[in-house]
Every structure is written in structure tokens, then in C-alpha cells.
Amino acid sequence: MNEAEYFLERTEQSLDDFHDWLAGLGQSWGLSRTMVLEINLIIEELYTNCIKYGGGPDSGPVRVALARSSTEVQILIEDRGPPFDPLKVQPPDLIQPMEERQAGGLGLHLVRHFADSCGYARRSGKNILRLTKVIGCG
């Protein structure tokens, strides 16, 4: 089992730095480019969600922990914002015509699509999201 963690600060630059870090990690863990992009997407969406609905700068950074086994990558995202379970958010209506559709709300839809499993818990004043991605043969 390989493990790594990263603290995402609540600043604009932090996602860029994280992207570079994750690309390097993906390479040393032997993950495909698509796999890395999808993990990046899951984490970006949940991180921006923490920033949007979570606490201010006082809540500190968002912690991302990754673990790779031979069959999957586990993603853990922890923040100290107010209790919020993003997995309970109503999915957007994708079959509405463009004129009636809302521009937003897609982030969590993408997370649900690309994660093979996801779960939420509130523990010790923290929102804890656990997701997994199965490593395919592709």
C-alpha cells in the first residue's frame, strides 16, 4: 500500500500546485493519465465545494489523503467547515432543454460519476469524505 497526503490551502494558487503534485504522484504510482485526471476532478470539485459552503480561512486547509493498493485508489477529504454532506445534494436535471437548465450544480454530479464508491461522515468537528476509484486495466 502506497500512501500520500496533501494540505490544500484556501488560496487560488493551491489547486495549480496540487495538480502538479498529483501528476507526479500518479506517475510514481503507475496510474494512467485518465485516472489521474479523474482523481484530480473529484478532488477539485469537493475542494471548491468546501470553500463555497465551508468555513472561512479559520477552518484551515483541506486535507487530502490518498492510498493506492493493487486494485484501487482511496481518496479521503477532510475539512473543518460546518457540517455538510455534499452527497445529499440533489443531482441536476440533465434532460431539461438548455433554456431552462441551470449553469451550475454539475460538480457533485461529476464526482458521483467518476467515483466508484463514496461515503460521508462527521467526526471530531470534521467533514470526512471517503471515495474510491478502482484501477482498471486501461
Binding site: L37, T48, L106
Partner: peptide, 10 residues
């Protein structure tokens, strides 16, 4: 374009 997230989709 290598990557797009919901912010870009919006």
C-alpha cells in the same frame, strides 16, 4: 484542452 471541471463547464 487537457482538463475541464464544473467551473469551466459553467
Amino acid at each position: 484542452l487537457d482538463y475541464i471541471s464544473s467551473a469551466g463547464l459553467r
